[in-house]
Design a protein around this nucleic acid. Structure first.
Lengths: 152, 152
DNA sequence: CAAAAGACTAGTAATATTATAGACTTTATA
DNA sequence: TATAAAGTCTATAATATTACTAGTCTTTTG
C-alpha cells in the first residue's frame, strides 16, 4: 500500500505552494528550485512532477524571468485525491473496486468475491480521506501543530 | 495504493481455506492444486505464496499422500492484516507513519509535515479495516451475498 | 540579445514483481 | 519396500516500475 516518491514529492510540493506567504498573504508563486531546495527533492525530478501536475490542470505556470508555479485554483478547492490520482493513479487497492478506473481483476466470481468486498471498504476509506482533504485543510492542520509546539 | 498479485492470491487462498466444507463442516485441508484451480492462480506461484504464509505461522501443512494446507488457527483468529503484512509488508502508505516498520521518510521536518499527518490517518483507516476483519468475517459476508442473490 | 525560467523528450540504473523450473523431502499405501 | 503423491526450497528469467538524469527547446523580461 505504498505512496510512490513521485506522489510524495508532488503532494509535498503542492502543500508548499498552498502555504500562505510569510506575512499572511495569499498563496504564492514559487520557482522549482525554491521548492526543491526547501523540500529536499531533486530539482530535475520535481520539474517533471510539476509539469505533470500542470498538464493535469492543477497548477499554472509563468515562463521566463520572474516566472514560477502557482496553484490553478484556491487551496480550498484542490483535494489530495486529485493530486494523488494524477501522480499515482487510482486509489483502489485492486482494479475491480476502482470507481475511476474499473477493470475486472480475474477472480472466478466477482460478485461473491469476499476479498473484493473488503477491498471496496478499504478503497472507500482511503478515498473518503483523500477526496475530502483539501490543501487548505492540510496547511491549517500544519499551523495548528506549529502553534501547539510553539514553533515559528 | 495497490495490492500486489502475491497479496491478492494469498488472501484469496486463505479465504478459500477458511470456507466451511460443502456440508457445513469445519475449515478444510486443501491441496495447492485444488486452490489454484478454483481460484485461477498459477500453481507454482501459489506454492511459493502458501509456503511463505506457512513459514509465517498462518498456515500448517501435511506432506505426502493425502496432504495439503490448512489454517494454523481458526478462521476467526486470523485477520486480513496479518496475511497482508506477510505478503505485502507494512500497511502504511509512507514509512514514517508505519506502526510496525517505522523509518524516517526524508521530509525536512517530520513533526510538522502536513502530508505525514494525513497519511497517518490513511494508515489508520486501512489498518482499522484489515486488522479488524477476520477470515471468518469474510466468509460470513460472502455467504450473506450468496444468499441475497439466491446462488448456490 | 542575453539570461532566467519553464516545457518537453528520451534514456537509464536499480529494484520489484510475477512468475517458472527443477531438484529434494516426507508420507501413505499397495 | 517401492512408488506416487504431496509439500519444500532455491535459483533464475522476463517484465514492469521507480526514481532519477541529461539535454534540448521555448518563452519572457530587461
Amino acid at each position: 500500500m505504498r505512496l510512490s516518491k513521485r506522489g510524495e514529492y508532488g503532494l509535498r510540493a503542492m502543500i508548499a505552494l498552498a502555504e500562505p506567504a510569510d506575512k499572511g498573504g495569499s498563496p504564492q508563486m514559487m520557482q522549482i528550485k525554491e521548492i526543491s531546495l526547501r523540500e529536499q527533492i531533486s530539482t530535475k525530478f520535481l520539474e517533471q512532477i510539476l509539469l505533470t501536475l500542470k498538464n493535469a490542470g492543477l497548477l499554472h505556470s509563468k515562463m521566463g524571468v520572474g516566472g514560477g508555479y502557482y496553484l490553478a485554483r484556491s487551496a480550498s478547492e484542490i483535494t489530495l485525491g486529485q493530486i494523488f490520482r494524477v501522480l499515482d493513479g487510482p486509489v483502489a487497492p485492486v482494479k475491480c473496486v476502482s470507481q475511476m478506473a474499473y477493470e475486472p481483476c480475474g477472480c472466478p466470481d466477482e460478485q461473491t468475491c469476499g476479498l473484493r468486498l473488503v477491498m471496496g471498504d478499504v478503497r472507500n476509506a482511503i478515498a473518503d480521506i483523500l477526496d475530502n482533504t483539501t490543501l487548505a485543510d492540510v496547511t491549517k492542520r500544519q499551523s495548528a501543530v506549529r502553534k501547539k509546539l510553539g514553533i515559528k
